[in-house]
Design a protein around this nucleic acid. Sequence first.
DNA 1: GGATAAAAGCAAATATTTTGCGTTTAGGAC
DNA 2: GTCCTAAACGCAAAATATTTGCTTTTATCC
Lengths: 185, 185
Amino acid sequence: MATRESVRPGGRSARVQQAVHTAVRELQAERSREDLTIPVIAARAGVTPSTIYRRWGNLNDLLADVTLERFRPETAPEDTGALASDLLSWGEQYLDEMVSAPGRQMLCEIMASADETRRQRCFQYAREQIAQIHQRAVTRGETPPDVDTLMDFIIGPLIYRVLYDSDSATPERLREWVSRALGGV
Amino acid sequence: MATRESVRPGGRSARVQQAVHTAVRELQAERSREDLTIPVIAARAGVTPSTIYRRWGNLNDLLADVTLERFRPETAPEDTGALASDLLSWGEQYLDEMVSAPGRQMLCEIMASADETRRQRCFQYAREQIAQIHQRAVTRGETPPDVDTLMDFIIGPLIYRVLYDSDSATPERLREWVSRALGGV
DNA sequence: GGATAAAAGCAAATATTTTGCGTTTAGGAC
DNA sequence: GTCCTAAACGCAAAATATTTGCTTTTATCC
């Protein structure tokens, strides 16, 4: 059961969604993932468990749903005046976020979710940020590689290393990725 | 509870492990992931559910454990006579395997597992294959980029695209990744 | 404002996971 | 080979979690 984007947008449904999301975030801060269960979340949210089951289906999907919110970037990437430094600056922040314990946890939650559209959404968020940086570079008169190339050679290795071997996801490597993506050696 | 590598290696323990793994593989072929539960697996394996709970902890970890076996490459990568074509040939096969529905499912299962060492092991398998290809190239007198560079710019984007947007993980893109990794434009 | 159907609540029915305890058995010591 | 010890397993009861049928509430559309 994919979380429907369009439950009724107003009134009680919205309140329940809000309450459940809040409950999850609070509980995530307090307990380990191990003892985070739907009945516990329901109790905290002041909602009956069956409501959660019917709406989100299972814990994985609920957590992935909440997690996706956190991935949504709330600010535009910083403008440092040049493509390379924009990418580095944004990338370092992204890397930091992703290698942190909660960040890795979040990634795994998204990955574990059966729903592919959710993973795609997560991909989209990063792509939009990169697209903004790209667009700015074009406006400045730089001639950057296209957005997909940047994704492939910067975000690709970054996420890959975070997921599989997070110790090797370092800012030093990021510099290599950026320089290689921009056509350097 | 990480699956211990060294349960007692002989006798009953080994038989149970074997029976459970077999049961999982059989059931995966018959049913959807939805109705694959530990009691069902236990019944098929002729084992009591509590045995599975005590040994593997939960379904995620059991499936990830079984899945990891499938990731272990059983043959050395084909030798086509040159680095670029070796990478392409191996990469195409790897890509095929990963974008297939069961392949994606497998990746998600590994991701969903709490145990990071399992994810690292999965990374290791691919790295060993690449390392072999690399070594052969060196022996031939080619001067390839180092193994980590190959991982970053070929496997990185490959896995990234498979996970987030599998439609965009195509052999055409693979060619670009290989050529870029080898220093081309 | 009233009709209608989606979403929530409640509680009983199922299914699952956990746990305590007795039994089997692998692996080591002699 | 036999004995000892502790790891694994089996079994069944207890604790939890999930599903489901039915009722009630309430957004949303006319």
